[in-house]
């Protein structure tokens, strides 16, 4: 039966014509969707377009197509080839990868530990994970700057072991960035993993035990496959913010351990080089979409 315009439609217990229902719908979503289009969707397209435009002498944007910004990101600057930008990109991927793996290694057991408590305790533990998550990252990074400063035990230990010079702090540097990243990314990994673990079908685990599977095989065949979509989601949800991280590398890494987020910020502020900034942003956007695509795939396969 085909439906004609103007025919009554039953929706939420109420008769209305489809055009009228749709008009109401558009009216309701109009404000928010309009705002998202203007601040996010269209700018994303602009950013991608901007990364192919020429930059003038004083940072103004010229309406001239070029692939120069991508070439500059790959290191081909006006003074010949240098690996500076490529190093920053590679380092960002590496740090994000390491921080994500470490976060997952800590979050996975933690998710099981939380899921095994009584409902009341679960709520408390989840809130304990959420509180730092809801605390401003600048505040938490400030905490690491105190902990790693030259006068406290961790730095004393490193000084005694000869890892750093006497009186020096443990930041800025690679170690500090990794530590700060794991600490700030951990909740991103815990929360999706917890949802996956909470939904575990325990009948499968009991069946495996009844059939005398060793603890390892129970985990390998009855637990791990069930949590795989959750692991995928946690990986993407941790990696995506990790790759765009700005505060942690800025305060704990300094100029010698810059990541791509800092490079991006520099282009929009100090260097006033929007086209190069846009090229970097486009790269981050592409990585984000790639991450989301992988998650979708994983979740579809699991179904």
């Amino acid at each position: 039966m085909t439906e004609r315009a103007g025919d009554p439609v039953l929706s939420h217990g109420r008769l209305g014509s489809r055009p009228r229902l749709m008009a109401t719908g558009w009216l309701l979503i109009g404000g928010a969707i309009g705002l998202l289009l203007i601040t996010l969707v269209i700018p994303t397209l602009l950013v991608v377009g901007l990364s192919f435009l020429e930059r003038g002498e004083n940072g103004e944007i010229l309406l001239q197509a070029t692939t120069g910004n991508i070439a500059r990101l790959a290191g081909f600057g006006s003074f010949g080839w240098s690996a500076d930008y490529l190093w920053i990109l590679a380092r960002s991927l590496w740090v994000a990868g390491v921080a994500t793996s470490l976060s997952l290694c800590l979050a996975y057991p933690l998710a099981f530990l939380i899921a095994a408590r009584t409902p009341r305790w679960r709520l408390v533990l989840l809130a304990l994970v959420a509180i730092p998550f809801c605390t401003n990252l600048v505040v938490r990074t400030n905490g690491w700057m105190i902990l790693l400063s030259g006068q406290l035990a961790p730095a004393h230990l490193a000084q005694a072991a000869g890892l750093i010079d006497a009186g020096r702090a443990l930041y800025p540097g690679a170690w500090a960035v990794h530590l700060g990243m794991v600490s700030s990314l951990l909740p991103f990994a815990v929360l999706p993993l917890y949802t996956a673990v909470e939904r575990l079908d325990h009948a499968l685990i009991d069946a495996a035990r009844d059939l005398y599977a060793s603890p390892w095989r129970v985990f390998r065949h009855a637990v791990l496959p069930q949590t795989l979509p959750g692991l995928g989601a946690a990986t993407a949800l941790t990696f995506i913010p990790a790759i765009g991280m700005f505060v942690v590398p800025d305060l704990l890494g300094g100029s010698s351990y810059m990541l791509v987020g800092n490079l991006l910020q520099q282009q929009f502020f100090t260097s006033n080089d929007w086209p190069l900034g846009a090229a970097i942003a486009s790269l981050l956007i592409a990585l984000t979409f790639l991450g989301l695509f992988v998650v979708r795939r994983l979740q579809r396969n699991a179904r």
Binding site: L37, L40, P43, M245, F268, W274, A281, L292
Partner: peptide, 22 residues
């Protein structure tokens, strides 16, 4: 469109905002 801001790193949101206002 609705989930875009939830999954995007905040630095991309910030760059988009700067470009939009520009």
């Amino acid at each position: 469109i609705t989930y875009l801001p939830v999954v995007s790193p905040d630095i991309i949101l910030a760059a988009c905002l700067v470009v939009a206002f520009g």
